[in-house]
Every structure is written in structure tokens, then in C-alpha cells.
Design a binder for these strands. Sequence first.
DNA 1: TATTGTTATACTCTATAACTATA
DNA 2: TATAGTTATAGAGTATAACAATA
Lengths: 169, 169
Amino acid sequence: MTSPQMNAQVMTDMEVRAHADHHASLRLWLRLLSCTTRMEDTIRQRLREQFGITLPRFDLMAQLEREPQGLSMSELSRRMMVTGGNVTSIVDQLEKEQLVQRQTQIADRRSFTVRLTDAGRTAFAAMAQAHEGWVVALLSPLNESEQAQLHHLLGTLKSRNPTPTQEKT
Amino acid sequence: MTSPQMNAQVMTDMEVRAHADHHASLRLWLRLLSCTTRMEDTIRQRLREQFGITLPRFDLMAQLEREPQGLSMSELSRRMMVTGGNVTSIVDQLEKEQLVQRQTQIADRRSFTVRLTDAGRTAFAAMAQAHEGWVVALLSPLNESEQAQLHHLLGTLKSRNPTPTQEKT
DNA sequence: TATTGTTATACTCTATAACTATA
DNA sequence: TATAGTTATAGAGTATAACAATA
């Protein structure tokens, strides 16, 4: 490829090939986007209809469910990759419905620990179970081996791209 | 598996297996979502910074670019899967910037044909070229064969799931 | 009556910036 | 001064519903 014999014809072929590859990448991206958006819209709609909850609220509860000892507002902000004011608003709503609670810190009185309440944990368990069922059903066109392949390919994609944290900061 | 010898122990194993699979599906979904969201956020941000355009506006222009003869408002609404009022608002903005134009129909005076202007076509060409470059770069962790595999797997996923049209209507 | 498109309204999510209380 | 969190505001995107003009 890099030999001195490389000539104008080869360059042209390479360019044609590059264009074809670019279009293939673009088609792949559009397919990736449409598959994901379609699943996400379905899940979002069902969460709203069946549980009266939005995806960000569900995500916040999911974060808390993984951390029984609770998380600070700023840590929630970091993990959900949204700014602080938005976390305040989501926690306000969930607290009003008694699904989460703010606990004052002894060590640092500026900060709160946010936790799921018992009611919140119970409610989340039901939602998470339904959510998992939807995901399993939506991915069921792929068998176990195909899902593993897809997981692997996406892992390659993810690990070699900059993280959102790096980009956002 | 369905023989009379199937006993409690087998059931338990199956259940354990099912749970493991479910968790694998959930992990796959989270990875699919985060890969896609990360790419989409990057693209959205660059479109805004470099071209002062939002993704829906870019998408609308992309629809028009594919149909030189133009599209009606309702056809744009259908293709973009958003309700009519939103299309009105996006077309209003693009028309104000003279990137698209509404043409009255002779046959049906209720309806418009929306087209790219020459300026719109020129502007879109520059944006589309940059966009394609970003997509190629973002997908570059996967080689050609891996991209083809991913495209194929997502095709399977897409073709055997209900279409958004069915779900939205 | 039905359809095309517009307008008005409301809601969610998001970011930015000014602010308060505490460290 | 710096940090944790709140408040206020603004903007994008979305849906719904009432409306006008035309078919």
C-alpha cells in the first residue's frame, strides 16, 4: 500500500472505498440511533403510563438503589451527568411523593444524604422488575449468543472513545 | 427439558439461568443506551457550536435534502415522528434563516411543499460533511468487519420489533 | 365532515447564574 | 474564599387541543 508503485488509480480506488465506508458508518450510526431511540421511547412511555414516573426520576432512584447508604446531591449530579439545579428539582418531586428523603449530615451541614425511603425501595423494586421484563422482551429478537456479540462490540466502541465526563468537563 | 424427569432442582437452575440472562440483557441495554447517548450528545454539541443548529433542525433539513421535490408539513411530521405543531415551529425558524421555503400547492391550497433553498442546500452540504466525519471518527474504534457485524445485529433487532409508527399511533 | 396546517398552552429536561448557608 | 445546595430564569423539545381554511 505504501510502496512507490502506488499510483493515481490506486488513490482513486482508495477514495471510492473511503466514501463507501463513510456511508456504511453513517448507515450504522442511523441504525444504532433508531434502535436505541425506539427502545427508549417505549420504555419511557410505559414508565409514564404504568408507574407515572419519568426516565430521569427512575434513573435517580436506580442510582440510590445501588447505594443503600445514600448519595449526596453533588454525587447524584455527577453520576447522572446533569447540573445541580436539576437534581434539586427531581429530588424535590420524589421527596414530595415520599419515595426518597434528604438526611442532614452531621459532619458537613451544607450537604445532604439522599436515600430511598422504604416506600421508595418497594416502589422501585416493582418498576425495576417491569423495566427488566420490557428490556428482555425488546432484546429478544437476538439470541443469547447474538446479545453477547453485541455487548462485546459495543464494549469495544465504548472503551476506545472519550468518556462523557471528559467531554462534559 | 420438558421430560417428566424435570424436577425442582432443574427448575431452580433454569430460574437462575433466566435471571442471569435477564441481567445480561439489562447490561446490554445500558451499554447500548450509553454508547448511543454519548455519540448523540457529542454530535448535538458540535452541531450547535460549529453550525448553530439543533439536531431536529438538522434532521428536518436532512429529510428535505433526500427529497429535492420537497415534502408537505404532514409528511415531515410523519417522517420525523413528531406532531404537527413542532414541525411548524422548526420550519418557521429555518424559513426565517432562509434555509428552507414553503411553496403553496396549486392542487390543494391547504397544503405547502417545503424545500431547501439554494442557501439551505449549500449550508446543509457543509454540515452533512462534518457530521459524517464525526460519525466515522466516533465509530472508528470498530474496524470495517466489526461495523458490518454490528449493523447486521442491529438489523435483526430492528426488523423483529414493532415499528415506532405502530407504537406511536 | 375530514384534512392541512397554525396557534396557544403546558410540561419535562436541561443549562446558567445569582444566591444562601456553611466550611 | 471555596463548596453544597437552592432558586430563578431561559430555551429546546415534546404533546394536546382548539382553531381557520380548504377539500
